[in-house]
Amino acid sequence: MTTQTPFHLAVVTAGVTQPSSTRLLADRLTEATVRALAPLDVVVEVVDVRDVAHDLTNNVLTGFASPDLQVRLDAITEADAVVVATPVYAASYSGLFKMLVDVLPQDALRDTPVLLGATGGTARHSLAIDHALRPLFAHLGALVAPVAVFAASEDWGSVEAGRLGERIERAGTAFAALVQGSPRAARVDPFAQVTPFESMLTDLRH
């Protein structure tokens, strides 16, 4: 019997209603990804942003995370891949979603494969993924999957809804391929590997 290190998939969902179509999309994207990653042993950790809404405000004001929020930030930072899903508000990701991104440690998502998902009331918001989410995650240095999924209200309710399932499946399969082709480099802990003082002094002379 071989022991395999489990693959950690963090899922960030920023829907605020209960039940939430954003959460539903996140779950479906996660299922599709996990299926495509089989037989890999995948551990899924879901971060529902609503659960830490107050903690996020406090973190922005005080500069540190509460224990509840810290657990979630650690899960995202240490994940091998991340699925995100946000509702589109005012032509962009929601404010809560952005607050979470704002308090992530520097380089938390660098080189991390990220699958983008968004929901909205109408398909006319679908470009929010490309004009808002994509630049944000490019800035963070994430490895953003080319195939993303936008789900409008009509996608859930119409006879065409079957198409959404296909798009989710396609995104999950493509994401799994991306993830498997790009092993992420280990994070550097600046407290464990400190720059020796002599080299800081030497740097000044250049």
């Binding site: 005080t62 500069g63 540190f64 600046p190 407290f191 400190v194 720059t195 020796p196 003082f197 800081m200």
Partner: peptide, 21 residues
Amino acid sequence: PEIAEQAAYYGDGFFSNHIFW
């Protein structure tokens, strides 16, 4: 961490503000 390293290099004291965090 650079400042903790600096204090250690010179053998000076290190003070952690400790409050607010």
